[in-house]
């Protein structure tokens, strides 16, 4: 419940106005030598009347002028502090969100880089395997061709070796025996040895 200020003001004014009457109506308690109780002294009642007016002025000056100035400054400070606190809280929330975003971005970038790396590695591995397979196939072909060439050359060499072996055998027999051997028997013997060597 809030009391209207006018009630207080009116009550105060009534109270202040009634004071001189109360003082004047006080019993004539005049103690000899005690100036405070010398109610016959007009200055004593006068100070109450003056005091009532001065206090009323003091109250009105405080209520209407001095105290609102202090209240305004305190209110402004409170608002400013609250505003600054709100701003600080907002800035902290923004900073937290930025850090969260940064972490998320970093995580996403790391994941993306890892995926890219994995894909590049996989592609490179596949390419290397393909190249190796191609090279292997090529080498197989070349080896096969070389082996075929070697076999052919060997066969040709063996073919050309028989007449030479026959001639050498005939010359050896003729030198050893002085008799010309039968050419057909020599060729048969060479063929037998050649078959044994080749076999």
């Amino acid at each position: 419940m809030r009391l209207p200020v006018s009630l207080i003001r009116h009550s105060l004014m009534m109270g202040v106005a009634s004071l001189p009457l109360l003082v004047a109506a006080a019993p004539g308690a005049h103690a000899a030598g005690m100036p405070q109780l010398d109610f016959r002294n007009p200055l004593l009642t006068g100070q109450v009347v003056w005091g009532a007016g001065i206090f009323l002025f003091f109250y009105l000056a405080l209520r209407g002028w001095a105290l609102p100035r202090v209240g305004t400054v305190l209110e402004n400070r409170s608002q400013r502090i609250n505003g600054d606190l709100d701003q600080a809280h907002q800035a902290k929330a923004d900073a937290d969100a930025a850090v969260r975003d940064l972490n998320q971005t970093k995580k996403a970038a790391a994941a993306e880089a890892q995926a890219h790396l994995d894909s590049v590695l996989a592609a490179e591995k596949k390419a290397a395997a393909d190249r190796l397979a191609q090279l292997g196939a090529k080498l197989e072909t070349e080896i096969a061709a070389a082996e075929a060439g070697v076999a052919k050359e060997r066969a040709q060499a063996l073919q050309s070796l028989r007449p030479i072996a026959g001639d050498v055998a005939e010359a050896l027999v003729r030198r050893l025996t002085g008799v010309a051997p039968d050419r057909s028997r020599i060729e048969q013997a060479v063929a037998t040895v050649a078959a044994r060597v080749q076999g």
Partner: peptide, 27 residues
């Protein structure tokens, strides 16, 4: 010392008393 006068202090006390009675009756 104006507060050393019973007239002044009693006047202030009566002001408080009357104010409290008026507020009591009003409320």
């Amino acid at each position: 010392t104006f507060t050393s006068h019973i007239a002044v202090t009693f006047a202030m006390a009566m002001m408080v008393f009357i104010l409290s009675v008026i507020v009591s009756l009003k409320v």
